[in-house]
Design a protein around this nucleic acid. Structure first.
Lengths: 338, 338
DNA sequence: CTGAAAGCGCTTACAG
DNA sequence: CTGAAAGCGCTTACAG
């Protein structure tokens, strides 16, 4: 279909070995030859066949990204989308192409596809099944996890310091004068929700402000409706009504706000709310939502950087790369007179 | 590194031709041979090399997605993310891998990369430069646009019927009793913003409700801050203050809401607001935002379906595939007594 | 039914 | 400095 190195060789009156040498700029070639060859290349708009190159170089300059998700949407998820943005930016920088797939539970099909396509490395996002890791391990493809949950050893995992984030949240609400705090806790089997809650309650206790059991509600998933239901549950069962709510992610917080609105409560005048993740919506929402920022894009970017080092067989020291979260103070937790 | 067809041949005591035949399930092979070969394949967990296959079959089973964007973030964009979700879902169904890239203005680097990687087809998203199209054309790679803006002929473009969407918006606000309507109009060089505005004002005129020039503000981009500024401008310069605002996309609407809040206006009691796109946040925002739904995910899915037909050289009738938008009525435009 | 050969489009030693 | 040959891992006619 398109031109090959042979077409160039023929028209330039040299052998294909020579053409290859000038293209790759390796070995010896005379000035004159180089000019002839480049001229033909420009004329024909020749583009080398990356597949053929990959066959001999044994590398495709392609990395795979597998996002674990049981349901669509995946890419448009306000968290994973950001991570992917960072991955694409870094991949562009390191000159990798990136193949993106979504892996449904219990399936290895997209992982298999990555192996068949001979990607140079793989980035695993979210709570992957251990079978996926076993599978990749078997084919000795370099990989790295982002925001993963796994029991496995020797897996490089890029995560946020969620414990610390939970503590930041507790500090903030306490310092802002809230003392009767309710907590909406996302699914505990997720590493992040679990640590966020742990950090939050621990710190609150240190501050001398014990969490009342009535004021904590666990949700089965991290969706909007669950946040809404959780807030209603807390509101109804509590004797001392909460003056603030901490949700272990932003979406749950938005659910809570909707329910507050339906109960006639104003944010932040009647009740304060804060979330976790710093998804884009928290900033453009009115009122804007206080939250804990996670370096989503940076985590994606760095995942590629580290993966590239592994691919190039450079030393990689760390096993767990933990990012520091940052409190983002906004309107939804305005300071209160104490 | 990994096993090849030769390893299998050797251990099964047959030629590699035979192994190939059993794997591809083509030509004749005896039952006995087949069993022997499959046994070895399972034992070794052999995975064929897709590159080698692609070399001979001249197809990679990979499609490329190029999203035009001048700035990150791209993937996490509430519109493109949804389109990409649909693309991934369809690609999974048709058994394609997908390479995703972001193309910055005036650059052909990622497009070049797609050519080098020999993708079977390309999906172009958003307002691509015509050079990109020329470039792809030259290499005769099948492609298709989603939500594109181009002067070129014979380009299959999957778009939303934005004119119709604008009319739906006008009908809705009018029927809900609003008569003094302000409009925040995104950049007119974008096909979609331009048609949305056109449809809206045309319909409003038909309804006998001429738009006052003071009540329309054009923005230089479609970001939150621009929406905010635009609303303030309208508010300050209008004699009869608006009772409703239509913004040509949701993000602009959110900007307007923030400004309303700062001016002490309540939505929808003091003023109604509606946007366009139906991004996820319109639903979880409090109050929820009335908007016009676009089949973002479906557009992505269908793009792959049509592209696949072109790749397989099947007849493709249409040049422009237009989706019908749908009004989504929510809290931000509650009906008013007339 | 099976194997040897050619070829997909490159790169890389190896002679010359 | 340049060209012929081998090889990357497959598939596909072609003999047998």
């Amino acid at each position: 279909m398109s031109y090959t190195i042979n077409d160039i060789a023929e028209r330039a009156g040299v052998s294909k070995s020579t053409v290859s040498r000038v293209i790759t700029n390796s070995g010896y070639t005379s000035m004159e030859t180089r000019q002839k060859v480049w001229k033909v290349i420009e004329e024909l708009k020749y583009q080398p066949n990356g597949l053929a190159r990959a066959m001999v170089s044994q590398q495709t300059n392609t990395i795979g990204v597998i996002i674990m998700a049981n349901h669509y949407p995946v890419i448009s998820h306000p968290f994973y989308g950001k991570v992917l943005d960072g991955i694409l930016e870094a991949a562009d920088h390191y000159r990798y192409s990136v193949i993106v797939t979504t892996e449904k539970e219990m399936s290895l099909s997209s992982t298999e596809d990555m192996i068949i396509k001979r990607v140079d490395g793989i980035i695993l996002i979210s709570r992957l099944q251990d079978e996926v890791i076993d599978f990749i391990d078997k084919y000795k493809v370099p990989y790295i996890m982002v925001n993963g949950t796994t029991e496995k050893q020797n897996v490089i995992n890029i995560v946020n310091d969620d414990m610390q984030g939970g503590m930041l949240a507790a500090d903030h609400l306490f310092q802002s004068g809230y003392r009767n705090i309710g907590v909406i806790v996302g699914p505990q089997e997720h590493r992040s929700h679990s640590f966020r809650y742990k950090g939050f309650s621990r710190r609150l206790k240190e501050l001398g402000c014990q969490l009342n059991e009535n004021m904590v509600d666990q949700t089965k998933n991290s969706k909007f409706e669950s946040g809404r239901e959780a807030f209603l549950a807390i509101w109804e069962r509590s004797h001392n009504k909460p003056d603030a709510i901490f949700a272990t992610n932003d979406i749950l917080a938005f659910g809570a706000i909707r329910e507050m609105n339906h109960l006639g409560l104003k944010v932040p005048d009647d009740i304060a709310v804060m979330g976790f993740d710093n998804i884009d919506f928290t900033e453009i929402s009115t009122p804007s939502i206080t939250t804990v920022h996670i370096e989503k894009t940076k985590m994606g970017y760095d995942a590629v950087t580290v993966l590239e080092q592994i691919i190039k067989r450079q030393e990689v020291k760390l096993e767990m790369i933990e990012y520091k979260p940052r409190l983002i103070e906004r309107e939804s937790t305005r300071k209160r007179e104490i």
